[in-house]
Design a protein around this nucleic acid. Structure first.
Lengths: 190, 190
DNA sequence: CACGACAGTTCGGTGACCGAACTGTTTTCG
DNA sequence: CGAAAACAGTTCGGTCACCGAACTGTCGTG
């Protein structure tokens, strides 16, 4: 198994994970995928990641079985990338790291985003349980709503940033409209 | 302060986390710290990380308040590095990533290590709850035991690898004796 | 003092990452 | 239909992080 940057000799499951998802940008790409980002250009515009690096990461993730690359039906050249079940299984890790960042690097005013149980809209605990019904909430039942700490997107924010500022379900395609106004999109900003 | 490798423009708590713990080797260093590794040479020998990189990571983690550097009382030059409460708060993330690696890259025979509740020695669920009493187990009450998938350490394995193959509590110093510094190699020692 | 253990630094070589420009195809619109 | 734009990647040169090995300085012990 020739992984791009391995951690040789480590008899530790964490090292195996880091070989797959430990490279720069990878977890942010996966996070976007959880939020419903599906297209190459959306990842590139939202993350401001060099396009060559993005190509490499998506290829690596697809080869590892974490994401899946498929042609979007109907549209010609449009490729879409989606999480496989193996990728969805990374949600506890993404959630835990997000919760840690939110706890120790909180924005002014409060959390940037609030994860809720879609069934009753009660917020989730940091470990992903519903504060209303107490259940462990599956990823597809997580509703993301903007929190008080989320800066409103500027008028020239990229479509992903704009869509992330609105309530949405995880794993559902974030941007469904096919057509977009032709206007040179410049500048990242989440 | 300029973070070493930032993710500019990301209004996302995960990006904040990745700026602290997202660099190569950092999470493996933290994992070792959870298991009780405390000294520079132990990290270096066990992880096979370039020493300059290790110095950089420990300094960065200390500046971020995740780890703490202090002189070991008694011994002269010995510095020890320990997790702060902010560092301990990363345990859910480390556990989740380890569990994912264990699930999808299992070793022959089964898990490499089993996390248990020290009180009743019942194994923990992937999200850190005790299968015996059902409680969420704090990090300091986690007992680590070798699992069937853990390869036995070779005779020339470093002391950390050897100690990790024996049952131990998280956050407790893994190697307590100063390794009997320079015994006259008289009798067999424990 | 000599020696070994240890923490951390130095240094040259290599590869990953960056950012911007470019290629080739598909879609949209006049 | 034909031009222009959108899109998914690729190419390329500069820069920086990482690697590995050797080295420095300090402390404790024999």
């Amino acid at each position: 198994m020739t992984l791009p940057r391995d951690y040789r000799g480590q008899t530790c499951a964490l090292a195996r994970s880091m070989e797959i998802v430990g490279e720069r940008w990878t977890l942010l790409i996966l996070r976007d995928a959880f939020h419903g980002v599906r297209r190459f250009g959306e990842f590139a515009a939202h993350l401001a990641v060099p396009r060559a690096v993005l190509t490499d990461r998506l290829t690596t993730l697809a080869e590892a079985g974490v994401m899946e690359r498929r042609a979007e039906p109907g549209t010609g050249r449009r490729e879409v990338y989606g999480l496989t079940p193996k990728g969805v299984a990374l949600w506890p890790a993404v959630r835990a790291l997000t919760a840690w960042g939110e706890e120790f690097y909180a924005a002014e005013g409060g959390p940037r985003r609030v994860f809720r149980h879609a069934a009753d809209e009660a917020p989730l605990t940091p470990d992903g349980r519903c504060t209303g019904c107490g259940d462990a909430v599956p990823v597809s039942d997580v509703l993301v709503t903007p929190g008080p700490g989320l800066a409103p997107p500027g008028p020239d924010a990229d479509p992903v940033t704009a869509a992330l500022a609105r309530p949405h379900r995880l794993l559902r395609p974030l941007i469904t409209t096919t057509a977009s106004p032709r206007r040179p999109t410049r500048g990242p900003q989440s």
